[in-house]
Design a protein around this nucleic acid. Structure first.
Lengths: 227, 227
DNA sequence: ACAAAAGTGTTTTCATTACACCCATGG
DNA sequence: CCATGGGTGTAATGAAAACACTTTTGT
């Protein structure tokens, strides 16, 4: 057993971050992927991400890569898991700290730069094949989100600032893949006391106008059971 | 923006693992700490852990460090979180992938070697001051365990192979810090169908002998609500 | 005989689910 | 005037919580 005296003597893996971003568009859950401009896996679709800099916090690194490669900012971002199998990157030993993000569809301005030639949303049902072990990371993120929705309000990050009760109900129905009862849903949601009516209604559709609502807080709330 | 051509050119943080181990002894939740034999923080108490080797899986690294520094093996071990603040280690940039473990008190054989001069159990209410940001990691682990117990059977890793219903109830009471109703507890636990009576009773105490039980499976089971 | 923990059912309470009709608007 | 989604209450069901006494052993 060798004694360790100094950090510099350690032969250590490199550290990267990868970000799984979810949004809902047209009632379908989608994820944002970039087309790799550099080797390895040049031309393949991949999660946005890259290496952590020498003196950079890993959370900041995830924010930075997300912004650089996709133009996305100001979203909910949380650490997911750290993937560390020795052979996951053909270039050498790379450990990846994965994050996941949820964003509302509208403020998105997709943009390509840096390693990313192109950024696009893919429905989860129609994913291309992915670089590295990114398929595994994506599956892990999806499981986490599906789970976390049960006991927190993270789904709210998928909604714009103002929304109707039907909007939010549809969001839950999309994520869970099942229909919910309108009256029960509203009763439960309103009883939580976490949203408030905005002083606006949504008109212009050929139907009765809908009351708009807003969140009282944008912070993460965890409950024993949410829905 | 610099293009990355090779992993070797990246100046990257070093990667370590740290392990938070919980057990219950004398009805009190305790954690296993080691006394550091090497600088920095020589002589201070710390979580068992160390650097990940060049071609070593991070999970294996956690298992190895746990075994080397404390002699503990064969326990439930799960990744907790990755701590990556740039200044968390005075020696230089070190990212730590934290794990947490739960173990039954009996098969423990504490042992010191390598960087660890000594290993000891501390009640969570009486912790010494800890090296690095280990206090933060420990708090994070405790929160995770307290939460996960609500919807999984991980608490079982704290119990020996055979146990009485009162044993397991006391375990829940210790972790949650509140008393449970005996009849309701048994009704619920047995209805889950995950334990079976062992063909033994616990005699020898000056009281009515208790039926011993065993788990049908030792695997992790997650339910929507456990208790 | 007594101390000490094992074992055992019923009632109450609360949250979730199921279910159907009228309302306001734009075209 | 009609198609479209908005908006609203009550009854039935099921799970969790509250609650007290008898049994078996060792000393």
């Amino acid at each position: 057993m060798v004694k360790i005296k100094s950090v510099e003597r350690i032969e250590s893996p490199k550290v990267a971050v990868d970000v799984v971003i979810f949004t809902v568009e047209d009632g379908v859950l989608k994820t944002l992927l970039i087309k790799r401009a550099a080797a390895p896996f040049r031309g393949a679709w991949a999660l946005p991400g890259g290496f952590v800099r020498k003196q950079e916090d890993i959370y900041r690194a995830a924010l930075r890569e997300l912004k650089e490669e996709t133009g996305v900012g100001g979203v909910f971002l949380e650490q997911l898991y750290t993937f560390g199998e020795p052979k996951r990157d053909p270039r050498g030993r790379v450990i990846s700290v994965a994050y996941y993000a949820l964003m509302s569809r509208d403020p998105m301005n997709l943009r390509a730069s840096s390693d990313a030639a192109e950024a696009r949303l893919f429905p989860l049902a129609k994913l291309p094949s992915l670089a590295f072990d990114h398929k595994k990371i994506l599956a892990y993120a999806l499981a986490r989100v599906g789970n976390k929705i049960q006991y927190s309000n993270i789904i709210w990050s998928l909604l714009p600032r103002h929304f109707t009760l039907t909007d939010i109900q549809k969001m839950y129905e999309t994520i869970w893949g099942r229909r919910l009862d309108k009256r029960n849903f509203r009763k439960k949601l309103l009883s939580l006391g976490l949203i408030k009516p905005a002083r606006k209604v949504l008109k212009g559709l050929r139907q009765r106008p809908a009351q708009l609502f807003a969140f009282k807080t944008t912070k993460l709330v965890e409950l024993r059971r949410f829905f």
